[in-house]
Amino acid sequence: MTTPSETPRPGPRPAKQTFAAAGEDVDVMAISPVQEEGMLTDDRPASPFDDDIVAKARELAARYPQSRSALLPMLHLVQSVEGYVSQEGVAFCADQLGLSEAEVSAVVTFYTMYKRRPCGEHLVSVCTNTLCAALGGDAIYQRLQEHLGSDGKPLGHEEVAGTPGEPGSIMLEHAECLAACDLGPVLQVNYEYYDNQTPEKAVELVDALRRGEKPAPSRGAPLSDFKSVERQLAGFFPEDTDAFRADVDGPSQAVETLRGAQLAADRGWTAPALPDDVPLPEVEHK
């Protein structure tokens, strides 16, 4: 009986093994299809995930009856560190949850919120679904593409203006319906809502972001950055109560949201009055 060999894992190690087998006279770097830094050195690049992140990942896995359920939040956690899901991030989740990297990659590539390339300091998502588009969403997206593009080339979907991760850098994307249709056209910056937008307002907004300003959203917490909100999506909120409350109490009561309730209040319309003490129905005991 033969011993099954270990499944090769992508990354520097198998690459090194492969090239080691090629013999000493082969210039492996010259024939390599990829030129990855540190490919032939012994140590993998230092893990970007420190002890605090490892502890958080374990906490996530413990939140669920079955640890695999923690994968989606854990990928948000990975993005909070790296600003995207790198191959190291995939390996990290696989390690934590006892999954193969293929299983994790399959999940990462399914969901649009996991970015496979480094995101900007901010992520700007413009709704271009039918209703927002008809109200001007397409024009907003097009205008931002042109405005954020360089060398006469418009910025594409999930491309970054500026250097990813640097202050003022922006990833632009067109998004599907953001569930704020009564406030359309809408866009989000780091998933905070900016309602009732126009191309001009949107340009002003991204210019402010590029200058390092953080204009307040119409609805949501004071604007932070992509990595910080990814930590919240992973389920980790500011430890400090006041900071958490400041986020939670960020505005939400848009005029549109309250219109029906306000109209009813103005006109004196109400639901039928709740009766007092209605008993629960009797049921036969089986």
């Binding site: 669920y64 999940v107 969901y111 919120m113």
Partner: peptide
Amino acid sequence: TVHAGAGAYICGEETALLDSLEGRRG
């Protein structure tokens, strides 16, 4: 437990949602 999705309309379908909640493709 409040659980955040990751951007997939299909996860509004109840069984896809369950697969997603189990940490799989929705």
